[in-house]
Amino acid sequence: MGIGDPLGMASTHALASGMGGMRTAGDLVARMQITRGMRLTQAKEYVAGKLGCSLRDLADPVAMHDIRGELGLGRIPVQDLTYADEPGGLEAKFHIADVLGVPINSVQRFRRRAGIDA
């Protein structure tokens, strides 16, 4: 989908038909589509299986808030709810790669350049 006016395009599509991104498991399902070419149903079932949750949980921010916290998959800071002591950014992607069982390019390159696998 294209972008332009953030409210008229991005936010509206997100509310009308989107999974919710990092508020839910949208980014995880997207990752299976992008890296493995999985169609939507297959990608949702794969991610739900890896997370040990229901398909409905995948687009539920209440359920996913806890699941993401438990597995270290990154959570969105909102006002005083911050997560400075939890995995975030690239740190969270290390856990996502492990949980989903897929290589993440930025994680692999960080490992090599930081000498973690040396």
């Binding site: 989908m1 991005a10 997100a14 038909s17 989107g18 589509q33 990608a43 409905r56």
Partner: peptide, 10 residues
Amino acid sequence: LGHEVVLSFD
């Protein structure tokens, strides 16, 4: 509910 899809935000 349950029919949500992935948004790529190009």
